[in-house]
Computed example of a mutant assay.
Amino acid sequence: MDIDSLRSFLAIVDTGSFTRAAAQIHRTQSAISMQIKKLEEELGSPLFDRDKRPLTVSLAGQRLVSHARRLVASHDEALDAFIREDNTRPIRIGCPDDYAQSLLPELLEAFRQQLGKVTFDVLCASSVRLRQRLDSGDLDLAIVTRAPDSDEGWLLKHDKGVWVCGDDPTLVERRPLPLALFDKSCKFHTTALDGLGKFGIDVDLVAFTTSASTLVGLVRNQQALSAMASGSIPSDLKVLSGANLPPLPAIDIVIVAATHSHPMITPSMISSISHQFTAAQAKIA
């Protein structure tokens, strides 16, 4: 099997999209479609179910993933033995602002336990913008919230959305309901507004932002309620349980690597750290 074709296959699996995979590996979408077609002819099975949205990996594709990762990793390690790469530059990692205090420090510690005293260049932005920066080659890694039924990236944590308030829980009774939310690309933004509309609750949208500290400040100051991931809530804010508010969705937080990532970052390393995080969450649960 051709290494470049396997690399394209893995890019599609990790991004969940032929379009994003093409952008990351700097090929046209038609070129990687041809690579996948040749792989499918060689293996005698379709690798993706193209009729489903989002794009899903077939059973044959799922079987190929682990083999492809090993083959590509072995190929790259062999090249690294002969080609001196620049391991000194910082590792560029992106993270949504709400995970910057709760999840990112643990993740950086896990990488440094394996890599030693490396330096990280951290960019905080929404998941949508981080994917764009990955595709353009401006990031090596990114923590993002993935779409339901997607195989994107390596799982770090299952989480769920919750409604939060400051010291005054009676704010939930105010009409219109004052809200501060993450920006429109956040899953909780649309779900919260749509759900409140279905509940017949008028909303006063005080602000929307990519800044978690802005949301926390507004909630802490009794200016608004908010919808946040349960694992990112500061200890002084309160979860509104039992309030007549619509439910918020569960989410998967994953780490995604650029197709051409930092030379010190390998798929096996990311997989190991993913298992470390998911095992720790399973013990807590």
Rank of each mutant, 00 (worst) to 15 (best):
L104M: 06
L104E: 09
L108S: 07
L108T: 06
E109S: 13
R112F: 14
L115A: 14
K117F: 10
V118M: 11
T119L: 13
D121I: 00
D121E: 15
L123Q: 11
C124L: 06
C124K: 12
C124S: 10
S126R: 09
S126P: 08
R129N: 09
L130D: 06
L130Q: 07
D135R: 00
D135P: 00
S136Q: 11
S136Y: 01
D138K: 07
D138L: 12
D140L: 02
T145N: 05
R146Y: 00
P148Y: 00
D151Q: 01
G153T: 02
G153V: 01
L156F: 06
K157D: 02
K160P: 00
G161E: 07
V162E: 10
V162W: 00
W163K: 04
W163F: 09
C165A: 12
C165L: 12
G166R: 12
D167T: 10
P169D: 12
P169A: 11
T170F: 13
T170Q: 15
L171R: 15
L171T: 14
R174E: 13
L177T: 06
L177Q: 09
A180L: 11
A180I: 13
K184G: 00
K184L: 05
S185F: 03
C186G: 08
F188P: 07
H189G: 03
H189W: 08
T190E: 08
L193D: 10
G195V: 03
I201G: 14
D202E: 15
V203G: 10
A207S: 13
